[in-house]
């Protein structure tokens, strides 16, 4: 995985995991790899990997079963919530960038509509 330089690495890996969850590559309730395996999968150190699970847990995305490991949430509601959240972030960036180029809302809507018909 390529990392964006200025964003903390744990946030970038968290986003990557969230995307896999949204796309169904990780199923609700599925067990996640151990922190050591996660570290090797993403080439990060094990402390970063542990932090990723801790933060995901704080956001209610995964939970630990003592002695068994880390599992993702079974709640499909939670997963669609994450999806909305990530979509909103993309849209916010889009709007911000487009506004920076001098587009107003009707123009943006028009451009998107045109893309659809193509």
């Amino acid at each position: 995985m390529d990392y964006d330089s200025s964003v903390p690495i744990y946030l970038q890996v968290m986003d990557a995991i969230k995307k896999q969850l949204i796309l169904g590559k990780i199923r609700p309730g599925e067990q996640l790899p151990s922190t050591r395996t996660l570290a090797l999968d993403y080439d990060v150190n094990t402390n970063t990997a542990a932090r990723i699970y801790k933060e995901l847990e704080l956001q209610g995305i995964c939970f630990t079963k003592r002695g068994l490991g880390t599992f993702v949430t079974e709640s499909t509601e939670k997963i669609s919530e994450i999806k909305d959240e990530m979509a909103n972030k993309v849209i916010d960036t889009f709007i911000q960038e487009m506004s920076g180029l001098g587009y107003n809302y009707p123009d943006m809507v028009k451009i998107i509509k045109e893309k659809e018909t193509k």
Partner: peptide
């Protein structure tokens, strides 16, 4: 700490 430095300086360690 690398993550703190990245956050504080808003750039990578390499930059």
């Amino acid at each position: 700490e690398c993550e703190k430095i990245r956050e504080e300086h808003k750039k990578s360690i390499a930059d």
